[in-house]
Design a binder for these strands. Structure first.
Lengths: 195, 195
DNA sequence: ATTATTGATGAACTTTCGTTCATCTACGGG
DNA sequence: CCCGTAGATGAACGAAAGTTCATCAATAAT
């Protein structure tokens, strides 16, 4: 090797551009963005990024699009000491949040939490929950059930009398199903954005 | 008005295409995709979709990109009645969680929460937090600070004596910085996976 | 039936895109 | 110190992009 590898920095700028425009720009604009004087440099860069797995081509080979790795972010271990450079440390782990939270995309849906009946579980109003329909619900799971034709998020609990729904908030009563308990899906994750 | 408006259907197909390719295709390919014989039809369609707020142009006016409304599925409304088919609507593909939580990828890192000092804020042990380094920290924000060479997550608070760190848990004391308060970044989001 | 309106057509046109290739530059290894 | 290598340059090229506009088609209202 000869020149210091500036590709990570270039990738970072492309990621920022993508976050703003939801699009990988033309080679000409990549050159502008990164300070290249020639589109050929952009072309080379994209090929390298493709080789590294950050971008790929559309099915019709029309253009570059980001791949899963493009969205991965570094995870910093809270315990480790050497803090400042941690974000640039290449050895660290990087994950994509979608990948991390969603394992079966085809049967996963997102719901918005309403009310405060699960605050003990750390689910606040307007949090998003990741719901896996089709996963078997077990005792103790947080589930989305359909009660009175409405979604409700509760713990799934079980005693001698059978399954029932338990809120994560002492201010709410448990819900005993009249007949069959209708489970919509299992909550496998949650996320929240701070204004 | 004259012809029945087929735009919603066309939009749906574009959304499907986008879900697969993370990209709005060229006018020519839009024509192929939707059965137009002419690119001019695609051009007209995009202008109408733009007027309706589903797509917009990049800052540099290079190309069409989806706007927020493009992804705006009637997020499965907890209150609504017609549940079953809601999840099967192809337009309701999962939103990009990464997109949703991360706006500046290059200065965003993930940290793992340790301890229970922020349970009131819904941050539990082993939750992941999305940290924007470089964003200005304001009074009331949840921030990651460096105290005694360790990361700590707390509310940033301010009184006559200056800035200090306030835990989201009455069992912990507030932290007054000896000198300068060292802010690593601002917490802009969080997520959690249920085993 | 007639008309008004909106979307689709098809061709011509200009601009921009991406590729190629020979050449140049900068850094690290021997 | 000199070389080897990988990335950057710049120009030229063909292919594809998007725009424009006159015209056609289909529908809903009168």
């Amino acid at each position: 090797m000869a020149a210091p590898n500036r590709d990570p920095d270039h990738l970072a700028r492309l990621q920022d551009y993508y976050a703003q425009n939801r699009r990988i720009p033309s080679l000409k604009r990549i050159a502008e963005l990164l300070g290249f004087a020639s589109k050929a440099a952009s072309s080379g860069l994209m090929k390298r990024l493709a080789e590294a797995g950050f971008v790929e081509r559309t099915a019709d080979d029309d253009a570059w699009i980001p791949s899963a790795q493009f969205f991965a972010r570094p995870v910093i271990d809270t315990v480790r000491a050497g803090l400042p450079q941690a974000a640039n440390d290449p050895r660290q782990e990087a994950i994509g949040i979608d990948d991390y939270l969603i394992s079966k995309p085809s049967r996963t849906v997102l719901l918005v939490v309403k009310g405060d009946s699960m605050i003990e579980a750390g689910l606040f109003e307007n949090d998003h929950i990741v719901v896996d329909r089709g996963a078997p619900a077990r005792n103790g799971d947080i589930v989305v059930a359909i009660v009175d034709n409405e979604f409700t998020v509760k713990y799934l609990a079980q005693d001698k009398r059978g399954f029932f729904l338990k809120p994560g908030n002492p201010a709410y009563p448990v819900i005993r199903p009249l007949g069959q308990l209708e489970i919509y899906g299992v909550v496998v994750g949650s996320f929240r954005k701070y204004a």
